[in-house]
Amino acid sequence: MHKTMKRAVQAVLLLIVTMIFMTGCGKSKEVVVYTAVDEVFAEDIIKGFEQETGIKVKVVYDSEANKTTGLVNRIISEEAHPVCDVFWNNEFMQTIKLAQSGLLESYESPSADTIPDYYKAADHTWAAEGGRARVFLVNNAGIEGKKTPGSVRDFVSDEYTGDELAIAYPMFGTTKTMAAALYAAWGEDEARQYFETIKAKGVNVVDGNSVTKDMAATGQVIIGFTDSDDAREAIEDGADVTMVYPDQGPDDMGTLLTPSTVAMIKGAPNPDNAKVFVDYILSEKVERQLVEAGFYDLSIRDAGKDGSIKGMSVPLEDIYDCMDVSAADMEKIFSDAK
């Protein structure tokens, strides 16, 4: 028995060493990427990059519940010994936060030449591409007999009850960005009032845009305020829904477009490979590929051209500047015990 035990322990130790080796070997030609881009989309792009360049990508994904903030907090906590080479974010606010904290490296990617200056940091610490829009996902059966919403303001109109509407927690992700954008566009008082109305109406405030999408797709609510990529997914799944871009009239403010951002981390362990990766992600080919896949609504290289979706004209930095105030308000309004 004693010998058998000894052999069993030796076998287990050998197995563990082998497994650690298998799960952690190789470092010469690699790049470490932290990404908040949905895993189902990012996977294909990363595979393409690996095949094209031969550089192995080690990825850390983030989950929907703490999207972006989890990775940003991790990058901040790793400041003394950076692990990440490239931060590929699915929005811009947290990237600007990292830039202002001095955690990003300046790199002028040749792929970014065709990207409008409006979507690039002046010091080249980050660049944006693609874009998802904030949209209404309207359940066709549920909306019968009611007016289809055309503006963000319609979401809080008396046309719909709170039970018929859903939105993700505005303390996280793109809904948090949307809150800051409305603060920047309308001013603090009007925007705060807007979200207080959402709360007072008893709108379903849920964990993530995908949950909002599911609720609209299954008819649990009539209108879900979500991102266009989630809305497209519902349409592709055959749900009886329509995607509506709000505020597209000639005098309207346009909808919030959230571009993805790419940035190199200061002190990145693999700076050369990081540059190759940034060039690849910012390339027009990858941007179009992500538009094709439905992750982006549009290429920002097309911004302003006829027929493209009208976006809000508020500068990204202004939206960022409103974030602290709006985030604190959202916390206050939506963290109340139900």
């Binding site: 799960t23 949905d38 895993e39 990825v59 989950s63 929907e64 995908s210």
Partner: peptide
């Protein structure tokens, strides 16, 4: 980096 657990993978796919 590059060492994702099965639970994280399922959670990410599930949320999508």
């Amino acid at each position: 980096p590059g060492l994702e657990a099965i639970t994280v993978k399922i959670y990410n796919y599930l949320h999508y």
